[in-house]
Design a protein around this nucleic acid. Structure first.
Lengths: 217, 217
DNA sequence: CATATTTTTTAGACTAATCTAAATTAATTA
DNA sequence: TAATTAATTTAGATTAGTCTAAAAAATATG
């Protein structure tokens, strides 16, 4: 059984990796956990020893399928508790995070199945995120090209359709890599170019580019 | 804020002391916590340093009113969660303890008030125990003399009416001290003597004795 | 009442998770 | 490509909670 700290690190790795899409660096992880790189290194070794992640010195961390399942079971608990807090206890959506961060570490599969049933087997949580099932599986979201996304919506880059190296270099330059979240600010009717937010930076991309970025929403 | 371990020790002290009625010895506490006396001593010093208990070397521990309040707030959480598990999630009463032991350590007064409201402000939990209010107060239960108790019922010794030293010596001999739980097995119609259980031992007591033992049920 | 036994405390060590500071490796730049 | 800088790892220390073994205090016994 994982300790509370191990679960929190694993969940952070899962999220930082964009759901297992890309590697996570030690400093990224340390910052996400509000701790120091040395502490992150120690925990990385521990989780690698439990086969939840793979670790190559100086090159970062990837979640294994076992680690992904474990992370998704924590995510499931978090999202079911948030749903409970909002739907049954009348919490506002912005009050639930801190408490759900605690509740997600309660160890009882039976409890979560009962809660799931009590809530009517919800598919999404109050923030619109998908709730994984009790085997740690999350419905693979259908991929959508970025140009199909409406203003205000956001998604995570899953893949790039065209493998032209000029496109990939350009995407790399603007920070558009798999696992990265994009928000659509607006679309120009004239040329169908889009203004999007990547890493808190606003960028304009042409229709040719946005057609080639595959996202999950 | 108390750590999970501190909360568990404090709760154990509260219960072993019969709700603050009598002192708790180091070995008792160690056994209740499934740990060693040395560990109990360490934690006792820590809790005494936080003014939750008073501690006199070699003579045991007493909860302060501050400690009592803190313990009762944990008890409140435990009992509200048990009520939730049984009434809302359909748990059986014998499945709830382990999960409630975890849930009672979630830190959020707001959550407990909301849960209390959701459950309709229950006064007792599924085991029939009183639920303390959100200030850590528990309704003082009316005292009842042991001879008024019916078969099958149980209660905790709160005080002894007669201070005759022969009576007290006798009570001490059969293990009937304040804070100790008694269960009534049966009553003889002939002389109104009672068969009771104290510390898993069956004992017969006369009406003269049972009239003088004041209990809370 | 002196000795033996039990209970409790103290001393020192161990693990998990953390930190700082130093050393090492990788990446960047001149 | 050599030197500099940035990222990462290692080494050693710290805290909370635990343990074992030894010392000290209280209690029981002869």
């Amino acid at each position: 059984m994982l300790s509370l700290t191990e679960e929190n690190y694993l969940k952070a790795i899962y999220h930082l990796s964009g759901g297992g899409v890309k590697a996570v660096l030690t400093n990224e992880l340390a910052e996400a956990m509000s701790t120091k790189a040395a502490s992150a290194t120690d925990m990385i070794k521990k989780l690698a020893g439990k086969s939840l992640i793979t670790y190559e010195k100086y090159y970062g961390v990837n979640v294994t399928s076992q680690g992904k399942t474990a992370a998704l079971l924590v995510v499931r608990k978090h999202r079911l508790w948030e749903t409970f807090l909002v739907q049954k206890l009348g919490f506002h959506w912005d009050e639930v995070h801190e408490v759900a961060e605690q509740l997600e570490h309660i160890h009882s599969a039976h409890l979560m199945d009962k809660l799931d049933e009590f809530l009517g087997f919800p598919k999404i949580d109050p923030h619109g995120d998908l709730i994984p099932d009790n085997k740690g599986r999350i419905k693979t979201q259908p991929q959508v090209a970025l140009d199909q996304l409406k203003s205000g919506y956001h998604g995570v880059i899953q893949a790039v359709r065209d493998s032209d190296s000029n496109l990939l270099k350009y995407l790399d330059k603007i920070g558009a890599r798999p696992g990265i979240r994009i928000k659509v600010l607006g679309k120009e009717d004239y040329d169908e170019s889009m203004e999007i937010v990547i890493d808190d930076k606003k960028v304009f991309v042409s229709k040719e580019v946005s057609q080639n970025i595959l996202m999950t929403i």
